[in-house]
């Protein structure tokens, strides 16, 4: 059943129970999205790369290239944090945005975000401690992993020497900053990315106005009707 998404019944605040299973979304036909589902199956942001200024193009081309292996986290930490990021970002199948490797590269380079809470260590140390406290996460079954991450998100974990609620903020900030910087995520959400120097058609005038090259939403299945049951 086609679903236009003009209605909002697919949104988590507007439906009871768990979020809709994304398996009902269209498969990506062009380019890549994380897990190959999205709303814009014929949109690939990298197709526009020749229109971007060379500095921006180089940054995004490097970002879609396979990242170097981890150099900051130990193998144990990598196993645990990979499981954490997968649940946090609902990356349950390939292709995955390599969030662990991206976070590792940032911390290995010593990049910080300009502040830390007075009760917390710096971000790099925080993530090492999170990995230690969540050790064993990777060995749980999917339901067990989800339950443990949910307890982390809900502030129900209490760790010696680390404020788990603030640690959740640090971990999620690092995770979404990596995931939603990736062109595959742009494809999934229909974000057209860099637009310099070419720009857009002089904006979409008024609600609903679209320009000819705008990514088109497309839907195979109604996630409410077809997935929930």
């Amino acid at each position: 059943m086609a679903h236009s998404f003009a209605d909002a019944d697919h949104l988590p605040n507007r439906r009871p129970g768990d979020p809709a299973d994304p398996a009902g979304l269209p498969r990506q036909r062009r380019g890549t999205t994380p897990q190959m589902h999205g709303r814009y199956p014929d949109f690939n942001v990298m197709d526009d790369r020749d229109h971007w200024d060379p500095v921006t193009r180089a940054v995004l081309e490097q970002r879609v290239a396979p990242p170097p292996p981890c150099r900051f986290f130990t193998e144990n930490e990598q196993r645990t944090l990979a499981a954490l990021f997968d649940v946090m970002l609902a990356q349950d199948a390939e292709p995955r945005v390599p969030v662990l490797e991206m976070v590792d590269a940032k911390l290995y380079a010593g990049q910080l975000d300009g502040y830390r809470y007075e009760t917390m260590p710096a971000d790099d140390r925080t993530m090492q401690l999170v990995a230690q406290h969540l050790e064993g996460l990777a060995d749980l079954d999917p339901d067990g992993r989800h339950a443990r991450v949910k307890a982390f998100a809900d502030g129900e974990l209490h760790w010696e020497g680390l404020d788990a609620s603030l640690a959740w903020k640090v971990a999620t900030r690092l995770a979404v900053s990596a995931f939603y910087s990736h062109p595959w995520a742009f494809n999934e959400i229909g974000f057209r990315g860099p637009a310099y120097p070419r720009g857009y058609m002089r904006r979409n005038m008024g609600p609903g106005g679209t320009e000819p090259d705008e990514p088109k939403e497309a839907f195979g299945l109604d996630p409410v009707q077809d997935i929930g049951g």
Binding site: F5, H10, L11, P12, D18, P19, A20, D21, P22, L25, G38, R39, V87, M88, L89, A90, H146, V149, A153, T172, R173, V176, S177, F179, Y180, S181, A185, F186, E188, I189, G190, F191
Partner: peptide, 25 residues
Amino acid sequence: PIAWAEHVLADGHWGHALREYMRDY
């Protein structure tokens, strides 16, 4: 997108719910 993800996270959504709101951008 990153700022939008921080917005969605702040409202309490992660995992599949985060991805759903992000697709709705």
